[in-house]
């Protein structure tokens, strides 16, 4: 009896991390975009583009590296359209992002219609299967969560540190932040504003695409229409929840992943409380990420701590001659 509960909790934590992985990829991508001042509401669209192209290439080639590359390129292609329209042509970011989501959704269902009944080759499934690390994976409760995960899950985790290090500790990262805070100052000090924006938005798009492909290739393993099911929007929320910080995004993503797992696995959550049990319907749990994000947004605006603020120029186009 005792043993099965422990196993269930271990399985629950393992699934939560898996559910959080696409969220983490997309959030890191969105952070990169927002750090250069571009609010991209096309995250969901880029994820879907990556999900479908990743699945298509994985299905026809069976090669894991090629799958990742294709998914990343598809996401970056979506981001390129967005970057061209908002950076070079200075169009409204919100509207362009929404257009990208519409485009990506249409694109993925269209390309995906022939993939609906297909399954991936065994060799590809195997290369993304959880790596069982001996001994460590048998640690009760936490073992499975950390030491029985796909390489893909680890990639997201490591990527968060890479992004953090890049933004915080390199010269390029500093320039990138200045572009998002005050593009005029960056321009005046010789930083190529548009180039930074392009690279950052494209890299971000690639991460969103790879995150989308995690859902289709690894987590579900089959193609379904709109397979990302709103993860892109959760990522937009999580960027704020994590106050634009890649490492905080790890905790946020796994936490939101946990909430999604509860909704995914159980119908109603009953919490024992002094002999009575309260039943929380899972549909209401879906609200929590968004509700908490609003609360966090109010708190960071109130506390006005420098490092928690959104990038200063977020949402505004920059045109040298407008100064």
């Amino acid at each position: 009896m005792e043993n099965t509960t422990v196993q269930m909790v271990a399985l629950f934590l393992q699934t939560s991390v898996q559910m959080g992985t696409p969220i983490l990829f997309a959030t890191l991508g969105a952070i990169l975009g927002e750090k250069v001042g571009h609010l991209n509401l096309g995250v969901e669209g880029m994820m879907l583009m990556g999900a479908v192209i990743g699945f298509q290439v994985g299905f026809s080639s069976g090669d894991p590296a090629l799958t990742l590359l294709a998914a990343g390129s598809a996401g970056a292609l979506g981001a390129l359209i967005y970057a061209f329209v908002t950076v070079t042509l200075r169009a409204n970011q919100i509207v362009t992002g929404l257009a990208l989501t519409i485009f990506g959704t249409g694109f993925s269902s269209f390309v995906g219609q022939k993939l609906a009944a297909e399954t991936l080759s065994d060799s590809l499934v195997k290369s993304f299967a959880p790596m069982e690390i001996p001994i460590l994976k048998d640690i009760p409760i936490l073992g499975k969560m950390f030491f029985s995960q796909s390489l893909y899950v680890w990639l997201a985790f490591i990527l968060a540190f890479v992004v953090y290090f890049f933004i915080k500790c390199t010269r390029y990262g500093l320039n990138l932040r200045v572009v998002g805070e005050n593009p005029a100052a960056a321009d005046a000090s010789g930083v190529h504003v548009d180039l930074y924006k392009y690279i950052s938005i494209l890299l971000g798009g690639a991460m969103c695409g790879i995150g989308g492909a995690y859902t289709s290739v690894v987590f579900i393993g089959r193609w379904q229409e709109e397979i990302t099911a709103g993860v892109g929007w959760i990522a937009v929320a999580l960027v704020i929840f994590a106050t634009w910080h890649p490492l905080k995004a790890i905790f946020g993503a796994y936490f939101f992943g946990m909430l999604r797992t509860i909704g995914f696995k159980i119908q109603n959550l009953s919490i024992p409380f002094f002999g009575n049990s309260f039943i929380i319907p899972t549909q209401l749990l879906d609200m929590i990420p968004y509700l908490m994000t609003i609360i966090v947004l109010v708190i960071i605006t109130l506390r006005k701590k420098r490092e928690n603020q959104p990038p200063g120029w977020l949402g505004n186009p920059y045109f040298r001659e407008d100064r």
């Binding site: 359209i81 329209v85 200075r90 409204n92 990208l100 519409i102 485009f103």
Partner: peptide, 21 residues
């Protein structure tokens, strides 16, 4: 698939948004 309309919508939007430039 009706999704072709989504692709069409998206492309028209990108072009019109870009054209405002």
């Amino acid at each position: 698939p009706a999704s072709i309309a989504g692709i069409l919508q998206g492309s028209i939007l990108f072009c019109i948004l870009g054209s405002e430039f």
